[in-house]
Amino acid sequence: MNRLARAALVLTGLALPVLPLAAQHAGHAMKKGADPIAAAVSAPTRTPKNVVRDTYRHPKETLAFFGVKPTQTVVEYSPSGGWYSEILAPLLRDKGTFYALQPAGSYVDGYKKFLATQPAAYDKVKLVIYPDATATIPAGSVDTVLTFRNVHNMVMGGKEADTFNAFFTMLKPGGTLGVVDHRLPESRDTALEKSSGYLKVSTIRRIAQAAGFEYVGASEVNANAKDRADYPKGVWTLPPVLAEKDVGKDKYLAIGESDRMTLKFRKPVK
């Protein structure tokens, strides 16, 4: 091998690592500029059965609409089994604060078990029992309160005024209340709100405004035009509950999860 050939071989060998190194730097740049909500939605700690339901719940778009950021103090009211907590916990772990405001009762132990499934990811979640320990969340300290498919339970139990007042107290002036719930058409009998699991948009707006909130706007990201909101066992007829079991199962699976309103409110800045 002559000198020129050896030089060419050496240069070729030295050049080979350059492309992977450049690609590596590009990868780091992409990570730095990545959408933190998208990263949290893609967290490897999420359970596969929950990920499948993203097609109905649109967590990335929903949280973006509510303006959630990794530096915020966020309260999730009634996280139940932890579907949204799987996303919020890693999103807020390093730079923010995440309170799980769980109503006293059967879900508390289940949520504790959920936290124990991924202790390294959920170690900074602050579990607070509602209403017993709500005052441990300092008044005026929270950037965003989120509640997903829970207001219908408040209405059926007659607890909506007290709960929304608690949200108002804990939020900072200018703070956001984000609500997702099953939508009842405005033309339907309001009495259905006490039994069907569906609520009218006007009802939630009235509850929020009575507590002092300003209405900011709505998103149709969680809408489902296939949902008639008129079933033998209310919203629980649809997946994931499928209250009728095998009766009409294929039909209800084809409809999918309920038609949902996604509403944004703000605590006024005085």
Rank of each mutant, 00 (worst) to 15 (best):
A5C: 10
L9N: 12
V10P: 06
G13S: 00
L16A: 10
A26D: 13
G27N: 15
H28G: 10
A34L: 05
I37P: 06
A40P: 00
P44R: 05
H58E: 08
E61M: 10
G67M: 06
P70W: 06
P79K: 13
G81Y: 12
I87D: 00
L91Q: 10
L92A: 03
F98Y: 14
Y99L: 04
L101S: 08
A121C: 12
V125Q: 04
P131N: 14
P131V: 09
D132G: 11
A133F: 03
T136Q: 04
P138M: 11
S141M: 00
N150I: 01
E160P: 03
E160Q: 15
D162Q: 15
A166M: 06
A166K: 01
F167A: 10
M170A: 09
L171D: 04
L171F: 13
P173E: 01
P173S: 00
L177Q: 08
R183G: 00
L184I: 03
L184E: 03
E186T: 03
R188N: 10
L192K: 14
G197T: 00
R205T: 01
A208V: 02
A211V: 02
V216M: 05
S219T: 07
E220I: 04
A223L: 00
D230W: 02
K233E: 05
K233W: 02
G234E: 01
G234C: 04
V235S: 11
W236S: 03
W236D: 07
P239K: 07
K245R: 13
D250Y: 01
A254W: 06
G256K: 08
S258E: 10
T262W: 11
F265L: 05
R266F: 04
